[in-house]
Structures are given as C-alpha cells and as structure tokens.
C-alpha cells in the first residue's frame, strides 16, 4: 500500500524572460489502487507537475513537499524516484539513437529490481506484454523511440509500465494523438497494471475520452497551476458538456 502525497507545491522554471512560476500550491494524495484524473486546459501546468514528480532538473521546487510513504521524494535523484516506485509515462518520449528497446528494457528492469531478471522468464514476460499491447516482436530490435509513430511511442511507454511494475504511475496525456483502437489497447494495458499490481494512477489528460476506458475514482480540474475543483467521475461528465471556460474565466 503506497501513498504519494503532494502538499502546497510551488514550482518555477527559468525562461529567457526570467523566472516563471507555474505551479502555485498543488495538493494531491494518491494511494495504491486509486485512479486520479487531472484535467485541465493546455498550459495549465499538468506536465510541469508530472516532470516535477519525476525530478526533471529543469523545474525548481520553491516550496511544498512530495512524499512517497513518508519518504522525501524531492531529496531523491531521478533514478532513485523510479527505484522507489514512481513512473512517468511521458507526453513526448525521447529518442535514444543506437540503444535498442531490448537493451533498454533489460537495463531498466535490472536497475529497478537491483538484480538482472532471469533470462527465460524475462524474455517470456516481454513477449507477453508486447502481444497484449499488439506490438510486433521486431520492435525490440529498434532503437528507443527512434522513428516510432505517436501510437508506438505511447504503447512503448505502457509496455515499460507493465514490465517495471511501479507503485504509482503518472501518465501525461498518454491518450493524445491516439486513434480509438490504440486508445483502447493502451487503456487495457493500464487497467491490467492496476489489476495485477494495485497500481495507483495519476492520469493527466486534456480530454474525457480516455476516461471511458480507464475509470477514475477522483477527478481534479487543474487551472493556472493548481487544482480548481475536485470531485468524482461525474465531474468529468460535466467538463465534457461544459468545457473549461467556466474555470478559465473565473481565473482571469
């Protein structure tokens, strides 16, 4: 049973125009087995929240805290956070030329577990996970994200989620750019991970359509760097009907 707690989080970035505050007091608590949807307009700071949880060096935490089961996440390096059980499925996964998917997955698994996986078992696990995500087996010999279509990149992120078995996953617009078939496949992957490992999910999205396949327990409306309203799944239906205008205007 894991708990990720974010308290009064303020985050800024350095830009050419000087320091810019993006997160302005975020409070969130995510427990194992829970799915939290974070919905908000473009530019509201959703990816900033995701990157800050993962420890991207570009973002400066000015105040507030992030803890995982009481341990100070902000004190951890990026790889320590992953080893502690945090996972970020990125909105824009990065290409790594010359590094094959197979090599990458094995290296990551070894790092997370602290010991290299038993070969036969591992090869079988990778194969099964790829079949479930309808990924061709030739995929493992391609270089990480190089020349992948948008849909392939997102499947590859979910493949890692299923193989690395984190406790809490942040999915940053995993639905964007996916056609309905790919959206279903990716959603099924997330649901499998929830079922198999009791994964806690922070599902960042701009649209409600992924929520048809991954059912949120809580919905948080994110506007101008903080949570403007929260509720249950019904809040998503309301956003579907009304959009974000109400919040954006209230904020302006």
């Amino acid at each position: 049973m894991a708990v990720l707690e974010i308290r009064d989080l303020h985050v800024s970035v350095e830009t050419d125009q000087g320091t810019r505050q993006i997160l302005k007091g975020v409070d969130l608590t995510i427990r194992s087995g829970e799915t939290h949807a974070i919905m908000g307009p473009n530019g509201s700071g959703k990816s900033t929240l995701a990157y800050t949880i993962a420890g991207h060096p570009r973002y400066t935490v000015d105040s507030g805290s992030i803890t995982l089961d009481g341990a100070d996440v902000l004190e951890m390096s990026v790889d320590e956070r992953a080893k502690a059980g945090l996972f970020l499925a990125m909105q824009y996964p990065v290409e790594i030329p010359g590094v094959t998917v197979s090599n990458f997955l094995r290296t990551a698994k070894t790092a997370i577990d602290g010991t290299s996986p038993a070969l036969r078992q591992w090869v079988g696990d990778v194969k099964t996970a790829m079949t479930n995500l309808k990924m061709d087996s030739s995929f493992t010999e391609r270089n990480v994200n190089e020349g992948f279509s948008g849909g392939e990149k997102k499947r590859h992120e979910i493949l890692q989620l299923e193989l690395l078995k984190p406790q809490i996953a942040v999915l940053d617009e995993t639905d964007s750019g996916l056609d309905v078939d790919a959206l279903k496949i990716v959603s099924e992957g997330v649901n499998r991970a929830k079922e198999n490992t009791g994964l806690g999910v922070l599902l960042i999205t701009h649209y409600t359509r992924i929520l048809r396949y991954i059912k949120p327990d809580f919905v948080h409306v994110f506007v101008a760097g903080k949570v403007a309203e929260q509720g249950g799944p019904e809040l998503a239906d309301r956003l579907e009907a009304e959009g974000y205008d109400r919040y954006v205007e209230a904020n302006a």
């Binding site: 080893k83 990065v94 790594i96 990458f104 990551a108 690395l164």
Partner: peptide
C-alpha cells in the same frame, strides 16, 4: 535522453 533513462531507474 539522460532524464528519460534515469526516469526508468538507470543511474546517471
């Protein structure tokens, strides 16, 4: 690239 790999638990 470094961040992506580290975010998967791989040390620097």
């Amino acid at each position: 690239q470094l961040f992506y790999l580290q975010a998967r638990g791989i040390d620097e």
